[in-house]
Amino acid sequence: MTQDLGADLAGVLSEHLGRPVTVSGLKRLAGGSSHETWGFDAMDASLEEIPLVLRREFHSGMLDTDVAAEFILLRTLFDAGVPVPEPWLFVTTDSALGTPFMVMERAAGTDLRKDLARPDCDRDLLALATQAVEVIARIHAVPATTLNLDAQWGPAHEIGRWTAVIEAAKPDLDPLLATALTWLGCHLPPAVAAVLVHADFKANNLLISPEGRLTVIDWELAHPGDPVEDLAWTMLWRTQWDVVGGLHTAEGYVAAYTSLTGRQVNSEVLRFWRVFSLVKLWAMFLQGMATENVRPQLRMLGRATVWLADQVATELLEDP
């Protein structure tokens, strides 16, 4: 299959670039919940190897998202100077690859979480902490209305979106999950001006170059929304290899963000988005378990909902 994909990809790239291109080193990459992601090197007559990534839709992904929207978003962000991989081309149909796909630059480096977990990691953590906040602040500075994203947005819309994912998975609904959904509906935060929300901003989705520059990947969940949604989601992961827990304390992360952006973060609003983040992750895990022929990694995430249940109970007990 890899051989066929490589030949098909070379054909498509040659056609789009108008010159013969060969493809080598094709390798399925981890990461991404709704698309296949492959790394490969393209080479044309100049004999210069260009590291690229192929993302293509597949039918049994965790989420039904749109590669086209992701491509347009990346193009806009790249042109605006946000550190994202440069998108190269996007093909909807009528190609040898079958499903819609996009090709983009393969940014140098490894994901931040793996990098920080290296036993010999000697990164300047203070500089990285500052850079991580600068990156999310820069994302939130992009006017969401310019991005041709889903026009509907807001906390109620997000709750509805993930409730639908939960219902589609047809789980035996856990009482804590049901209660959390009710609680969210009763505690909607006030409306704010929409910014671009990445919606999966965490160390695994930040590539770090050998020189220490961060690049943001995995934009498939991006949408207009409340910037606090991103902060709360990032705070879900709190090991020593994460943005919060590794580079910042939870309080320090919020303080650094406020200091840089001037945006005050209301504690009740942050709590709403923390509970929402737990529900959203729970929904994602259930969705993974509802796919056909559930693979071990998705099954492992499905079993982790007990941890989410514990966290939901703790959050709701603050003020039921």
Binding site: L176, T179, A304, W307, A313, L316, L317
Partner: peptide
């Protein structure tokens, strides 16, 4: 409601050793 939350939270916490993704 708090009684139920504490009860279910306690059950979930005890089950946390049945998963291999998050701390605990």
């Amino acid at each position: 409601l708090a009684e139920f939350l504490r009860c279910l939270g306690g059950h979930a916490a005890r089950r946390s050793t049945w998963q291999a993704v998050f701390p605990g």
